[in-house]
């Protein structure tokens, strides 16, 4: 009944079908794990979760069809430029994390994102990035002995067995 207040967001119908697809995948895994065969099989909980997901996503799809759509498009409502570009940068950061290691990837990501979001000079962004990487290194690597991702691209440059 609250749904009457809400309008259909762009892409919501597609999202509903995506959720349904996910539900079916979960159910398939549940049945692969003998969820239908025994009440104590490894697949019983995945199967049950999949069924609940499928039924509720069907209900969601039906409900979505009945509400009025908003006029605005996907690019303004769901993925405005700030969000889209940030997500892109996050994806790039993820991709760089293993090859170049945590320190360099984080420095690059932070300075780029702060520079973009803040729209000021590069000096401040670089400073924020540098200080953050140092603080993280001190707290996590030194005090808590968490060995951060090393980066295999640069492994050759460091002495053998080096732990950054």
């Amino acid at each position: 009944m609250h749904d009457q207040r809400r309008r259909r967001e762009p892409g919501e119908t597609l999202f509903g079908y995506l959720l349904l697809l996910m539900s079916l995948a979960v159910m398939a895994e549940g049945s692969r794990l003998q969820g239908f065969d025994s009440v104590s099989a490894p697949g019983i909980a995945p199967l049950a979760a999949g069924v609940v997901m499928a039924m509720s996503s069907l209900a969601i799809i039906l409900r979505t069809r009945r509400v009025v759509p908003t006029e605005a498009g996907f690019a303004t409502r769901i993925a405005p430029r700030d969000v889209a570009l940030s997500v892109l940068m996050i994806a790039l950061y993820m991709a760089l994390l293993e090859p170049v290691g945590f320190h360099i990837a984080t420095f690059a990501f932070l300075s780029a994102l702060v520079l973009y979001l803040r729209r000021g000079g590069p000096g401040f962004a670089l400073l924020v990035a540098l200080v953050s990487v140092i603080v993280v290194h001190v707290v996590f690597r030194m005090v808590f002995t968490v060995v951060l991702p090393q980066g295999w691209l640069l492994r050759g440059l460091l002495p053998p067995g080096w732990l950054l």
């Binding site: 290194h137 001190v138 690597r141 030194m142 005090v143 002995t145 732990l163 950054l164």
Partner: peptide
């Protein structure tokens, strides 16, 4: 000592 080692490591 831990801090010191960590510092040297960098």
């Amino acid at each position: 000592r831990r801090m010191l080692l960590g510092g040297l490591a960098a």
